[in-house]
């Protein structure tokens, strides 16, 4: 599903975010990217979204090298990738329903499909009955659930999560992880950058560890070291 081949990305001559990084992620895998701040986790996620382009190497997503992809095709790539952020990135002037529906609206899904699929996904993330609330009326965990619902509503092939539990207390974080695990079991590939040692150690999924832009460990059913 995802393949990085000798990818190098730098932001200046002094700052090398990724150095000669290579790995394969199969369809339906759940992968943690771990490492200290500045180790290149977020850069790696941004490369998968084509928010960034590397200087060298190739990034394959769903069988296509996205480095050479023309800009007009990038939106189509992103429709196959769901994004979850540490700060949720919800739109404060839209209700829970509208925030989730927004992801379908911008890709031109018809109204009747939106009316059918949004309540279903809100039910999946445990927010049924809160459709009309605004983000500021929700707890942090609930806001992250809206963010998960928005990322998953278009049934993407890949879900990218950048520190999704970073702003949440441990119990709420565990709830979000159960949700991501459930989504993963539907066949969606999940790639998650995290600092949360407890979550990584509990889930025992594949762990790719980065240090100053270099992959130093790639371990199946790994732990946070």
């Amino acid at each position: 599903m995802i393949r990085l081949e000798n990818v190098t990305k730098s932001y200046s001559t002094e700052v090398v975010a990724l150095r000669d990084a290579s790995f394969d992620i199969a369809k339906g895998e759940f992968v943690f990217l771990v490492g200290p701040s500045g180790s290149g986790k977020s850069t790696m996620l941004r490369l998968l979204n084509r928010e960034e382009r590397p200087e060298r190497g190739a990034v394959w997503v769903a069988g296509r090298n996205i480095i050479d992809m023309p800009p007009s095709r990038v939106p189509h790539l992103r429709r196959n990738i769901g994004n979850i952020f540490q700060d949720y990135k919800l739109l404060s002037n839209k209700t829970v329903f509208e925030n989730v529906a927004f992801a379908q609206e911008v890709i031109g899904k018809p109204k009747h499909v939106i009316r059918q699929q949004v309540p279903a996904v809100l039910d999946l993330v445990g927010l049924a009955g809160k459709e009309d609330r605004f983000p500021h009326q929700l707890s942090g965990g609930e806001q992250q659930r809206v963010s998960v619902a928005r990322a998953f509503v278009n049934r993407p092939l890949i879900l990218i999560a950048d520190e999704p539990t970073g702003n949440l207390d441990p119990t709420t974080g565990e709830g979000i992880m159960r949700l991501l695990d459930r989504i993963n079991k539907t066949g969606t590939t999940v790639v998650m950058a995290t600092h949360d040692q407890r979550i990584v150690n509990t889930m025992r999924k594949r762990v790719i560890q980065l240090d100053r832009g270099v992959i130093v460990r790639d371990q199946a059913r790994g732990v946070y070291e």
């Binding site: 007009s72 939106p75 429709r79 994004n83 990135k89 739109l91 911008v106 890709i107 928005r150 278009n154």
Partner: peptide
Amino acid sequence: RREIEVMKLVGATDWF
């Protein structure tokens, strides 16, 4: 800009 960023990340085209 936040809204636009989200739109871009969920696959909205520039013209949209």
